[in-house]
Design a protein around this nucleic acid. Structure first.
Lengths: 144, 144
DNA sequence: GTCACTGCAAAAAATTTGCAGGCGT
DNA sequence: ACGCCTGCAAATTTTTTGCAGTGAC
């Protein structure tokens, strides 16, 4: 049993909710194939194999997975709301290509997280999460 | 004549477009009252005084202002797409309160921008912009 | 049996677009 | 006159919701 399965099940149980077959399928697909994904493409992938998982259930399950701490909203890709994994995925910075929309992930340095911590402390903020995203033109796109 | 007015006019001219009265009103309102704003609240504010500026024109003008480099998309507030100023606004970090949705802006340190530059260089990315956003609970909300 | 869960289709919310007329140069 | 610009309303796109039936314990 993988970590995310345990966490999701525990979360649902703690809220008196059930890990139904649809929710399991959705969770599996989220962690199976996708890095960054949007609700609609996820549904599309799922429906290749499971016709009986509906759009509504996907839209109802993603917030549950967010609350369970499994995933979070990420930056938009081509103006579509996207999600990314938290579990099994160390903190990272996003480098987003403005041209091809590719996202390069770079592991975050201690220096960087330390700077963020200091700034947040100065403002007396309890940090829950933070996001660093660089927009630019990637190596390949520069050539063209 | 303020900087943003010059820039917008130059931009429009360079594209063979006009600075119409509606576009001027929209630009004025963007720079007059708002820090972070969404299209709908902006329209609402404008229509208090100018009934004849339509929603469509606001939605058509904001992308022009983005292309002109005056504003950019910012993080969502309560799931609404928001915008913030670039012109007249030094680079900064956002500290967003998850509870009251307040945004504290902190000027960015040289150390931080230097770290970002190094990371982007390593990946051979031409940086156009970057965004640093910290999510947490602010000082006031902690007390409650 | 109870209460949560689901699919469906309708609704809502946010944004974009076609069009016919208006305006600036 | 020409081409850009506008408001309006309709269309799209994305997400949410009401409802009646289904399923787990």
């Amino acid at each position: 049993m993988e970590e995310h399965e345990v966490i999701f099940e525990e979360y649902l149980k703690s809220k008196g909710l059930l890990l139904t077959s649809q929710r399991r399928i959705i969770m599996d697909y989220v962690f199976l194939t996708h890095e960054h994904f949007d609700a609609d493409s996820l549904l599309f992938e799922i429906q290749k194999n499971y016709k009986d998982v509906s759009r509504a259930t996907v839209y109802r399950t993603l917030p549950l997975m967010i609350n369970a701490g499994l995933i979070k909203k990420s930056e938009k890709i081509k103006d579509k709301e996207c999600y990314e994994h938290i579990i099994g995925h160390p903190r990272h910075i996003h480098l987003v290509c403005l041209n091809c929309h590719k996202i390069i992930e770079v592991e975050e340095s201690l220096e960087l997280s330390e700077l963020i911590r200091v700034i947040s402390d100065q403002q007396n903020i309890n940090v829950k999460d933070y996001t660093i995203s660089v927009q630019g033109i990637c190596n390949e796109c520069k050539k063209n």
